[in-house]
């Protein structure tokens, strides 16, 4: 059983909502990333989404755009992420790690090489923002054969028939994008989210996790009541940006933000 499935099975037993932090790998520079990952786990992360920095992050708002720029300036490339995950796995064999990013760095490396190296490093899932299931007929099976989950997005604009296709192809969990827009936008509306998740429950048994617009404990708790997990990105990446000149302050700041959310979700 994949670490992601295992983790969600445990959470279900415990009747807890998954807390899924996102950080961009290599932000503010590569040597800090593994430490941040451990800090996130200590603060209550159930799954970690590790962002692959890209020069043209079309679905991201300014916060994550700048994170990509910082990471790239320090030379972070896809192959460094494999090293980071491998190092993380030396101390943590339980927490699932999902690589999230855009297709081009993966295309350039080659699908085969990517799947092999990601799996060997200890990655559990892959979410490629600009690769809907229709374009994944070569990549998806390759990931599967290496034990990696293909995680797909579902949006408020997704039609019922598309949602069925996505549910059929998705593994690990489904990532519901709470609003039309880029990352770091307006706050998620829990009622609206609930309305969109209801029909998905009839189509799939996959856990439904919600991202975009989760900013603090209150929004995490509100969305957490209707979802199986919440994803938080920009709120964390903001703290990394604030501490970029004093990296020692970042891990405690990340733990504070995520700890508040964990507390709000569990109470």
């Amino acid at each position: 059983m994949n670490r992601i499935d295992q983790r969600f099975a445990t959470l279900k037993e415990q009747r807890r909502t998954a807390l899924i932090p996102y950080i961009t790998a290599g932000d503010p520079s590569p040597e800090h990333t593994v430490g941040f990952m451990h800090a996130l786990v200590e603060a209550g992360a159930d799954v970690i989404e590790l962002g692959v920095p890209f020069s043209d992050p079309m679905a991201d708002g300014p916060v994550i755009q700048k994170a990509c720029e910082r990471a790239l300036r320090h030379g972070t490339r896809l192959h460094h992420l494999f090293d980071m995950v491998r190092e993380f796995r030396q101390a943590d064999t339980q927490t699932p790690v999902v690589l999230m990013g855009y297709l081009n760095p993966i295309e350039r490396l080659g699908y085969d090489a990517f799947a092999e190296r990601a799996s060997e490093a200890g990655v559990d899932g892959v979410l490629v923002v600009d690769m809907p299931p229709e374009e994944a007929d070569e990549f998806g099976p390759l990931l599967k054969s290496h034990g990696l989950a293909s995680i797909f997005l579902i949006a408020p604009t997704t039609s019922r028939s598309r949602a069925a296709t996505i549910c059929a192809h998705g593994e690990g969990y489904l990532y519901y994008v709470s609003l039309k827009g880029v990352t770091g936008g307006a706050a998620a509306n829990a009622e609206d989210v609930a309305e969109h998740l209801a029909p998905l429950r009839e189509m799939t048994t996959l856990p439904l996790c919600v991202g975009f617009g989760i900013r603090d404990g209150a929004s995490a708790a509100a969305v957490g009541r209707v979802a199986d997990g919440v994803v938080v990105g920009s709120a964390l990446v903001n703290r990394i940006a604030e501490g970029a000149d004093h990296p020692a302050t970042i891990a405690p700041a990340l733990k504070e933000v995520l700890g508040d959310m964990r507390h709000a979700l569990d109470s």
Partner: peptide, 8 residues
């Protein structure tokens, strides 16, 4: 190759 929100 677009994010899901634009597919529709």
């Amino acid at each position: 190759f677009v994010s899901e929100t634009l597919s529709f």
